[in-house]
Design a protein around this nucleic acid. Structure first.
Length: 423
RNA sequence: GGAGGAAUGGCAGAGUGGUCGAAUGCGGCAGUCUUGAAAACUGUUGAGGGUCACACCUCCGGGGGUUCGAAUCCCUCUUCCUCCGCCA
């Protein structure tokens, strides 16, 4: 949700930026500004009425004290009348405020200057590519076949226990998974991100805080009995730590990392692209989250990009970085870089990380602010990124590292796995 | 799950129907003093809306109600504490 004050003076600039998303924001912007004006008028009117009512009540108290019961009773009528009036105004005000809120929820974040205009993923800009595409042996297999061959992952067993998209990791597969989580967490911690363990279920307020609600309700698993949601990403619990928080400027920047399983209904997904580990309902991810002074948030974003690059390079996985175009940019993001690893056996790029600056968009919903000295609190900027999502990294490792009838383990992982080869 | 108690400003803690956004203490900030610091003293110190700036309005866990008037009374929800039960 964009802060109102950014909309009041810049409607034209914002509309131009929104065009890059393929969204004509002009109608909704003018609606918002009108509702804002209406809301303020009603508020002023209500405030005046309440001020009158308050002073009448005060006077009644005084009159009673000085024994002038008659005058007091006369004033009560005035007061009652004002009360009825204020109730009506209150209702009109609530209606206007709700309508305003609703419209604000519909407006996505303003794309950053760097965001290219574009329709969909084909318009994303490749800004960086690293590593050699490995030439695989003739009999190279996709990861789902490798997983079966070496008994690393059992997809059918997951179907039996839960359903499609809930794999069971076994033996060295499970161990490799755990090794990756530990390696990622250690790597992030060394870079200054504090490790957290957070709840995997969140309440409604948290869902609204990071913007999963009300729009993406259908994408989350819901525990209706207790009105809780299974988290689709650690971003939700971690960022909500800061809901309704006023930080001291000296506390910034804040950097957290957390491993969690992620649960996504992925309603509407189907086809070959969802085979194996490519798309799951439950998967593991290590996330990094930052809270920044607005003046530094784009340096922070660059820092996160560099960080994820280092992580992928340490695993020697060929990757490229995309700057998402307006049409592919997430609702809440101002600028996003996607990382894709090349899967040689599938001959396609797999998204393994998404690094975004949300500027004040999330902070506004969260009421996450910071204060410098005695100044008024200001909205902070939030950023997050995957470092990294496990399944497609695992897929990339299995496929790119297959050689001589086995799978080699990258050097940096050997201390974590305790073995250097799967065969 | 059962029984009882509680929820007030950054923290502690007064306040049981009228001028209470709320005593007091601690903490924070500014100043006096000091070579500097500490101590002491003085002042200041919640958030949101609104205004050029004031005024003014809202908020004492959330929601609803009683009343001319609610932190204070009533209903309800949530959370926390104590005791009992169950339990990794």
């Amino acid at each position: 949700m964009l802060p109102l004050y950014t909309l009041r003076d810049n409607a034209d600039t914002i509309a131009a930026a929104m065009d890059k998303r393929g969204l004509d924001a002009r109608p909704i912007l003018s609606k918002i500004l009108n509702l804002d004006q209406e809301r303020r008028n009603l508020q002023t009117h209500l405030d005046q009425t309440l001020a009158e009512a308050n002073s009448a009540s005060r006077e009644i108290g005084q009159l009673y004290k000085s024994g002038k019961a008659e005058e007091a009773n006369a004033l009560k009528e005035t007061s009652s009348r004002l009360k009825v009036q204020s109730k009506e105004l209150q209702e009109a005000l609530s209606a206007a405020a709700d309508a305003l809120q609703e419209s604000l929820y519909l407006l996505p974040n303003i794309p950053h200057d760097l965001v290219p205009a574009g329709q969909d993923e084909s318009d994303n800009e490749v800004i960086h590519q690293w590593g050699d595409i490995p030439g695989l042996e003739a009999n190279a297999l996709p990861h789902w076949e490798l997983a079966r061959k070496f008994d690393l992952i059992d997809f059918e067993l997951g179907v039996k226990i839960t359903g499609a998209g809930f794999p069971v990791y076994k033996g060295k597969g499970a161990r490799l998974q755990r090794a990756l989580i530990s390696y990622f967490l250690d790597y992030n911690t060394k870079a200054g991100y504090q490790e957290l363990q957070v709840p995997h279920l969140v309440n409604e307020a948290s869902g609204y805080g990071t913007g999963q609600l009300p729009d993406k309700e259908g994408q989350m698993y819901q525990v209706t009995e207790d009105n809780l949601y299974l988290i689709p990403t650690a971003e939700v619990p971690v960022t909500n730590i800061f809901r309704d928080v006023i930080l001291d400027k000296a506390d910034l920047p804040i950097r957290y990392t957390a491993y969690t399983p992620c649960f996504r209904r992925e309603a509407g997904s189907y086809g070959a692209h969802v085979r194996g580990l490519n798309r799951l309902h439950q998967f593991d991810k290590v996330e990094i989250v930052r809270v920044e002074d607005p003046a530094n948030s784009y340096d922070a974003l660059d820092g996160m990009v560099t960080h994820v690059k280092g992580l992928l390079e340490s695993l020697n996985l060929p990757y490229r970085i995309l700057r998402l175009c307006g049409g592919d940019l997430g609702f809440t993001s101002a600028l996003t870089y996607d990382f894709e690893v090349y899967s040689a056996a599938q001959e396609r790029w797999l998204e393994v990380s998404s690094v975004s600056n949300f500027e004040a968009f999330q902070a506004n919903r969260l009421k996450l602010r910071y204060r410098e000295g005695n100044d008024k609190p200001q909205l902070a900027h939030t950023l997050n990124g995957s470092a990294l999502a496990l399944p497609r990294i695992l897929a990339g490792l299995l496929e790119n590292y297959q050689e001589g009838g086995g799978i080699r383990i990258p050097e940096v992982l050997v201390p974590y796995t305790g073995f250097d080869k799967i065969s």
